[in-house]
């Protein structure tokens, strides 16, 4: 569904992505694991076109999308949930969702405010509240909901558990799995191993801007050595 091949990207002179390749299949949650600064967020941004890739290919639903502008990538059905959340602070929750709303996609049940509230029930009670006056967990739910309103076929979730209380992390994991069960494909970046192991179907590990391991979550669970080498701090 999403295939990234030998992707390179730079911030100024710094060579951040040095050949990232990964593959997300329809209906699965693929976890991109790696330490801080390994290149997880940059991979997401490069796929979205927010950081222009310097070389390499990105193929989505069989079409090349590298070099397209972010809005074109989004319109093709790739949703993006940024790590920093980037809630529109002065807009209400309902207005934040409205910004994300796009036309229904053929063959997919359209997302509505009601449907988003069904996935994240706590949003329903605060539709009129400004986005800036929400807790971190609520903002995370809002950003995911905002992206879902665009009726994406695949969502890029950048570190959804970051900075959240353990209870909220649990709820987030349930929500993410529920989305997958409804048929959504997800590429999720994470450094929280405990969150990743609960939601992931397959995984890749990124280190210094390149993929060093990929396989199923079961295989990773079984391989203590790989985890010790790349994931423990």
């Amino acid at each position: 569904m999403l295939r990234v091949t030998e992707l390179h990207a730079h911030y100024g002179r710094a060579h951040i992505l040095q050949g990232v390749s990964l593959h997300v299949r329809p209906g699965e949650i693929h976890v991109l694991l790696g330490r801080n600064g390994a290149g997880k967020s940059t991979t997401m941004k490069a796929v979205m076109g927010l950081v222009p890739p310097t070389s390499g290919g990105v193929e989505f639903l069989g079409q090349p999308i590298a070099g397209l502008e972010p809005f074109e990538v989004a319109r093709r059905g790739l949703g993006y949930v940024p790590e920093e959340r980037r809630v529109f602070a002065e807009l209400s929750v309902a207005e934040n969702l409205e910004v994300g709303r796009r036309r229904p996609r053929e063959g997919l049940a359209p997302w509505t405010v009601e449907r988003v509230c069904a996935v994240f029930p706590s949003l329903a009670a605060m539709l009129k509240r400004p986005g800036g006056r929400m807790s971190g967990g609520e903002q995370q739910m809002l950003t995911i909901g905002r992206t879902l309103m665009g009726n994406p076929c695949l969502v890029l979730l950048d570190e959804p558990s970051e900075g959240l209380a353990p209870v909220i992390v649990d709820r987030m994991a349930e929500a993410v799995r529920a989305l997958r069960d409804e048929g959504m494909s997800i590429l999720l970046s994470e450094q929280n191993w405990h969150f990743a192991r609960r939601v992931g179907d397959t995984a890749s590990i990124i280190e210094k801007g390149a993929i060093v391991w990929h396989g199923t979550m079961q295989a990773l669970l079984a391989d203590d050595e790989v985890r010790a080498r790349y994931l423990t701090v």
């Binding site: 993006y80 529109f88 807009l91 910004v99």
Partner: peptide
Amino acid sequence: ILVRAATADREMVGALGVN
């Protein structure tokens, strides 16, 4: 609403599919 959102963070508005 889009204008207000873009005033706050226009890159994010673009990433949500707005031209």
